[in-house]
């Protein structure tokens, strides 16, 4: 993969790679609270059937995952584990923050033990608002993320222009910018 390392990738190859990446997202389910059930419904139930979107919800460990869905309330006691989990994932990695608690603290905005938003700890690509969001909302978040991955400049990410390339306007399901 020397071409990729140098960041010089022919356009058709980038398209091919991106398509491959976007339709084989291995998603690690980090279920913390109520939203975990809706995530389970979206990823594990026959009605919503996430695998038709090319998402594989069953990696055994975060080290095999491309995408993590943080769903539910993150407490200050839990936050270090979240950080460690994120650091274990291989690049390129994506984060979906599901539910109001993970987005901003939600109904526990004034609590003494809840982290008000996981974006204080790790960068977030997609916010799915709701308390809890319906499974369809999470699926839309996945689809929007796939669109973004398809348009991504892989070379830039590999060259380590990471900070610029990664920190972008996050997607908000049901509003906000969509590429």
């Amino acid at each position: 993969m020397g071409l990729v390392d140098k960041g010089r990738l022919p356009k058709p190859l980038t398209t091919l790679f991106n398509m491959g990446r976007s339709y084989s997202l291995w998603v690690y389910q980090w279920g913390l609270a109520c939203c975990a059930i809706e995530m389970g419904a979206a990823f594990g139930s026959p009605r919503y059937d996430v695998m038709r979107l090319g998402v594989i919800p069953l990696p055994a460990s975060p080290r095999q995952a491309d995408l993590v869905v943080i769903s539910g309330t993150v407490t200050d006691k839990m936050a270090p584990s979240i950080k460690r989990l994120y650091e274990q994932m291989p690049e390129p990695k994506y984060v979906i923050s599901m539910g109001s608690c993970a987005n901003c603290g939600g109904p526990y905005w004034d609590s003494y033990s809840v982290t008000k938003g996981i974006d204080q700890i790790i960068p977030v690509d997609v916010y799915v608002p709701g308390c809890p969001p319906r499974p369809e909302a999470l699926l839309e978040g996945v689809v929007l993320l796939q669109q973004r991955i398809k348009n991504e400049d892989m070379g830039a990410r590999w060259r380590g222009e990471g900070t610029k390339a990664i920190v972008r306007e996050p997607i908000v399901v049901g509003g906000g910018p969509v590429e």
């Binding site: 913390l32 609270a33 309330t73 407490t75 006691k77 839990m78 584990s81 526990y108 004034d110 609590s111 003494y112 033990s113 809840v114």
Partner: peptide, 11 residues
């Protein structure tokens, strides 16, 4: 326990 403590009684 305590990884999901949200402080209900205070809230």
């Amino acid at each position: 326990a305590g990884y999901m403590h949200r402080g209900y009684e205070k809230l």
